[in-house]
């Protein structure tokens, strides 16, 4: 009996020790998984944002080649510069209009993205081929696509339009009236790839029994799309909608890849303008504080707007769980 008791207590001790060891191993495993993203988060998100906020209240000291805080009476200089330029320079206003237009077009393009994804999801005739064609931009370098698109626009399109008696006298990329539209068309085409991945993925998660039950009740394809598919993928669509708001200030139709730092002014969006200011050919530390202040202004607009849109989507959008 005593022996048995000793055995049990030994087993308990061993088991406790084993559990402790297992716990340590588990913790180490979790830590090894979490530590790297956590580090990235701390350095690039928290650190990056703190630096950005501080920079917005600084200026570049030319003599010392360093950033120094602005005196209190000029602390908002970088912010006021944006509003001055926005209201005083007509180019900024047009740039804003162009940014809104591009964002709006990408927003409207959600509809064809969803419809095409639905067709592919339903495996309509030629869906496989379309899937490959539309998915190709995701797997082939954008530089290659841009080269192909340039050649198509400047060599193929004139021949094609020539069959209908139309003539292009100036390359659409060089013509100030057509260059932005030409870039946006590319952006729309390229955007299909991302939309396709997102929405076909969401649609593939729809339980087939739901569709089968609907069909038994006489549901047609349009009703399936409207009554089952749309409500069930709405959370995915709505995320795209409200996170896309920030695109007004950050996106451009691959302008930098097409033109580098020397894009014609007719193509400027906020995204491109501020990108070349801090990264491209026009970068200079003098503008960094201004760019930081502008990013905070944009956040002040985009963050509440995104949250409001999120709230509206959750409140008025279809509430589905599966």
């Amino acid at each position: 009996m005593k022996e048995h008791t000793t055995d049990v207590s030994l087993n308990v001790a061993f088991s406790k020790k084993n559990k402790k060891k297992q716990k340590i191993l588990e913790d180490l495993f979790v830590a090894s998984i979490v530590i790297w993203p956590l580090l990235l988060f701390v350095v690039y998100w928290i650190g990056g944002n703190i630096t950005n906020i501080m920079l917005a209240f600084q200026e570049y000291n030319i003599e010392e080649q360093s950033f120094t805080f602005l005196p209190l009476n000029r602390i908002f200089t970088n912010f006021t510069r944006f509003f001055k330029e926005f209201s005083g320079t007509s180019g900024m206003g047009v740039m804003f209009g162009r940014s809104i237009l591009y964002w709006f077009i990408t927003f409207v393009m959600l509809i064809p993205h969803i419809l095409v994804s639905f067709c592919i999801h339903k495996k309509v005739r030629g869906a496989g081929a379309f899937k490959i064609i539309l998915f190709l931009p995701s797997v082939i370098s954008s530089v290659v696509w841009i080269m192909l698109y340039r050649i198509f626009v400047e060599y193929g399109l004139p021949v094609f339009l020539g069959w209908f008696g139309k003539k292009i006298s100036i390359s659409l990329f060089m013509n100030s009236d057509t260059v932005f539209g030409t870039l946006v068309t590319y952006g729309i085409w390229l955007g299909f790839a991302g939309g396709l991945v997102l929405y076909t993925g969401a649609m593939s998660r729809i339980p087939p029994e739901l569709v089968e039950a609907g069909k038994m009740d006489g549901m047609n394809t349009w009703q399936e799309f409207w009554l089952i598919t749309m409500p069930l993928i709405f959370p995915t669509v709505s995320i795209g909608m409200y996170t896309g708001i920030v695109g007004i200030f950050t996106s451009s139709p691959s302008t930098y890849t097409f033109f580098g730092g020397n894009a014609p002014s007719e193509t400027y969006t906020f995204g491109y303008y501020f990108f070349v200011m801090v990264f491209g050919g026009q970068k200079t530390p003098v503008n960094f504080p201004y760019a930081s202040a502008t990013s905070l202004i944009f956040t002040a607009f985009a963050a509440p707007t995104s949250l409001l849109l999120k709230h509206l989507c959750e409140k008025y959008g279809p509430n589905t769980e599966f």
């Binding site: 007509s90 180019g91 100036i170 060089m174 013509n175 020397n262 014609p264 002014s265």
Partner: peptide, 17 residues
């Protein structure tokens, strides 16, 4: 600068206008 347009490349501006 001409209104909303920025000129950086005289070759291009003389060509397209």
């Amino acid at each position: 600068t001409n209104g909303t347009a920025n000129y950086t490349d005289p070759f291009l501006e003389f060509y397209r206008t």
